[in-house]
């Protein structure tokens, strides 16, 4: 049951590569694998909190004010995560910068609250948050890893090729984010089409 859900989060409904959710942080913070993973985990935490509260309150919140309610709930969790990160994970907080408060407007979170948590049981909502979060984290980590390897020749700060070798710096810069994401989307689409045909 959970395994099937996990595959849904990682592959069939992968937030970044299949649903194209949360592209803003996915492009901006994936200059290296660790910032990508950090962003993914921060988002997962917020997702878990918001899905939990939204699912619990789904029968209490009047439909007319559900969006403002969701936004207040999400914003609260984002701020809590931000404060905690500043206190305990400062280098990551510094590296992610403005993109931490911007988790509020990550459509993945509002999307899961609106489309899933507000219509499903607490248990299913939490599982959804976990698998979607894992999918998001893996996507960002992967994108970050590709860009870090191509752009800096290292992975998670560990130098793979000698520092004297010039790497394709463009991959560490904003254009590289678009190029990497585009190529990865193309590859996944290619695989999906081949599977459908087969």
């Amino acid at each position: 049951m959970f395994g099937k859900e996990l595959i849904r989060g990682i592959y069939t409904e992968n937030p970044v590569f299949r649903l194209l959710f949360g592209l803003c942080p996915a492009l901006a913070v994936t200059t290296a694998a660790d910032t990508g993973l950090g962003m993914g985990l921060a988002t997962t935490t917020v997702l878990l909190g918001s899905n939990l509260v939204v699912s619990l309150l789904k029968n209490v919140i009047p439909p007319a004010v559900r969006i403002p309610s969701f936004i207040v709930i999400i914003a609260t969790f984002v701020t809590l995560v931000g404060m905690t990160m500043e206190a305990f994970f400062y280098p990551m907080f510094e590296a992610l910068g403005i993109f931490i408060p911007l988790i509020v407007v990550n459509c993945l979170i509002l999307g899961r609250a609106e489309a899933f948590a507000s219509k499903n049981t607490l248990g299913r909502s939490l599982v959804d948050a976990i698998v979607m979060g894992i999918g998001f984290t893996i996507s960002l980590g992967l994108l970050g890893a590709v860009r870090e390897i191509l752009g800096s020749g290292s992975i998670l700060g560990f130098q793979l090729v000698p520092g004297t070798v010039d790497m394709a710096l463009v991959f560490a810069l904003p254009p590289g984010a678009f190029i990497s994401l585009g190529l990865m989307l193309a590859a996944l689409n290619y695989i999906a089409i081949r599977r459908k045909e087969a």
Binding site: I61, V65, S69, V72, I73, L80, M83, E86, A87
Partner: peptide, 30 residues
Amino acid sequence: MIFVLGLIAAVAGGALAGVNAWTAPIIEEN
């Protein structure tokens, strides 16, 4: 509507104040 939204905002405010009181000294020290 007013009551529910107000309540959510109040609980959120309380949670934020609590966590802030906990993290602020640590942040200051950092």
